[in-house]
Amino acid sequence: MATATVVDERVARTSSLTKVLKRPESGALVAAIVIFAFFATTTDTFATASGASTWLRGASTIGIMAVAVALLMIGGEFDLSAGAITGFTGLVVGVLTTEYGLNIWAAILVSLVLALAIGALNGILVMKTGLPSFIVTLGTFFVLQGVDLAGTKALIGQVAIQGMAEVPFYDQPKAIFGSSVDILGGAVYASVFWWIAVTAIATWVLLRTRAGNWIFAVGGAQVSARQVGVPVLKAKVGLFMTTAGAGWLVGMLLLFTTSTVQSNTGVGQEFIYIICAVVGGCLLTGGYGSAIGAAFGALIYGMVNQGIVYSGWDNNWLRAFLGAMLLGAVLLNEWVRKRAETTR
């Protein structure tokens, strides 16, 4: 028996291009480049600094959630309450500060604790009952939606937070969550940097830490994972808490960028996150996918969302495009997965 080396001479048979194409995020990357090229050539404003500033901002908050949802989907679960929680956390901060005069940092902390508690509740309910996460989080989604609408109205008598900018120390969290810097004449919002940071950290965790190994394992084969000693409960509850934590971050970014939040903020976005994650290469069945792919998925969403406006089309076409994109991505993912499972 020859001594083993990591690189076998037979590996050379697969070219590096095939290797790149086999990565789960490559489809989304190619699609993003094509879509950028399309709008950059067909419209005047799309590729300018100010144009890019708009679609990057749109993509960033969706992207943060899509990355967290992608981790959760790789771990084999869904979270339909992920959209509603972005509105919920913003409303908590808004109501506590404008109506009850709580210190703004204390309010931010309270909303974070509440978000993590909701995430933990989602996770524990899913794991202890054995019910599909689709059902459990559908429940928490509707509860949150009701609380957002009725609770806000009952407490402040309106459906949107007003007077946020007059809250003492508003400028401090605004600098962290809602400011922007000028780069080449276009404003780049804080949310874009948060998005890049979240994507980088998520990718690192997924591919280079024990936690990442466990996420793939619990999504791919939960029973096997438990047999070899992976803490399944901890991993799954952690994923739900991460998603809720990302929801809190996006809630803060939305609140401090626009200095207001509506009681229906985030509702309806939960499926967009899932679509972005799937476009980015996540399997609906779990165990396979990528965080950076989900970020590309969100980039596509942001570019199309704004590109349609710049092209002067009816922006309802966005929905049709997203649906087609999802179907195409699912088919591509299935094909890639089958190849991954059978290529020898």
Binding site: N213, F216, A217, G220, A221, S224, A225, V228
Partner: peptide, 14 residues
């Protein structure tokens, strides 16, 4: 074992 994970990740899983 977890079918979709690489051999080396499976080997050391847990």
């Amino acid at each position: 074992v977890v079918p979709l994970m690489p051999v080396w990740r499976n080997f050391f899983l847990g």
